[in-house]
Write a protein that binds this DNA or RNA. Sequence first.
RNA 1: GGAGAGGUGGCCGAGUUGGUUUAAGGCGCACGCUUGGAAAGCGUGUUGAGCCGCAAGGUUCUCGCAGGUUCAAAUCCUGUCCUCUCCGCCA
Length: 432
Amino acid sequence: MLDIQFIRDNQDLIVLKSLQKGYKIDVKELTGCDEKIRKLLGEIEQVRAERNRLSENSKGAKPSEEDIEKGKNLRNRISELETELDPLVKKFDELIKKIPNISLDDVPVGESEADNQVAKTVGEPTKLDFEPKSHGRLGEERGFIDKERAAKVSGARFAYVKGNLVLLQFAIIQFVISVLTDPDILKTIIQDNNLEISDKPFTPILPPALVRTDAYEASARLNAAEMTYKLENDDLWLNASAEHTLCNMYMDEILPESSLPLRYIGFSTSFRREAGTYGKDTEGLLRMHQFDKLEMEVFSDQQTGLNEHKFLIAIQEYLMKKLDLPYHVLMKCTADIGKPNARGVDIEAWFPSENKYRETHTADYMTDYQARRLKTRYKTADGQTKLVHTNDATAFALGRTMATIMENYQTKDGRVKIPEVLRKFMFNMDEI
RNA sequence: GGAGAGGUGGCCGAGUUGGUUUAAGGCGCACGCUUGGAAAGCGUGUUGAGCCGCAAGGUUCUCGCAGGUUCAAAUCCUGUCCUCUCCGCCA
């Protein structure tokens, strides 16, 4: 959510920036509501002050009949005004939640994901001297992926992942953690990208996979209908990303400035309903109801928030380069970055069987938009309380990463070579 | 799942027959006095959020959270979340 003071002062900007994201905002309705609330609140406070004076006068003793009568009147007046106030506050909350975050100036303006811009391309699309197989077919032929039996047990978009492909997943996890916990590697990445930020390593973290409605809503990530599973008997939702239980872990807290940045590398199984995607990506591991993911989450001060965002992207690229996978980086346009984002970047990896790039990573920078409702703040050295800036970014979505490795590293006889850096994490196998 | 206890300010902790508590006392922290310097001592300040105001300042809310009763709620009632102890179950 945005700061109401900022909204009052920048109404035209809000309307314009919202429109660029595809949100038609009636900002006058919000500010009008805000004015009414403030006026009414002023009245209520006056009556309350009167009541407080009354009980102060009685100084512990029982007040006179006359004062009791006065008190009764004041109470009735207060509850009258409050009855008037309640619906206004509800409306205000609804309206202010509708306003998306303001995109940064370097975010391309666009109407759909078709307007995303390729910022850079790294590596050449893999050339194979044979007809490439899709990772789905390859995986089934080799017994790595069994979706038919999974469908019998759990339905479409589930899989049994088996054998050496499982070793590959665990190897990727080990590899990522070995990079993100190594200050020397991080220092190099920071220097190579001219970022002036801390080289503090990431803390590995296993977050809860279930999240309560209030914490989920406060994170501005609850996208109920199309995305998230709700547990009927409890006030709980299934994680659609580790980020959904990482971003809110410091909800209602004030952190010392010296503790920032807080950097986490989380692992979690993610669950998505994928409603409205019937018939799309039905083969292989690209679009599953359940998949494992390594996600980076950073809480920082306001000055370094943008650099942390760039840092996370640099890490994503470092990891992709180490796996020697061809990819390109997309600057997502205003329509595609999402409501809480100020800036968003996708990485798409090359898929030889489809002869195109497919999304494997996202990096989201929320400025203080997410922290405002979460009330995650920090105290500066000179005693000011400020909202943290939050960043999240995929390290690797494991299903999609294995898919692109399988496709780019496949051999003519239907096997898969293992990227050099992963071998030591899988018993030195060079092929599966 | 059953039984019980409890959630108070940065921390500890008092207050629960409703009214000198607009939260005692202590610790910590900050500033000042004192000192050659320090400690001790003394003094002042120290949750967070909003509104009005150029400012000085004023004002409201905040004792897990949400309702309710009352002239008046940390205190009583209801719901809810969380923590702890014991039992049961469980990887």
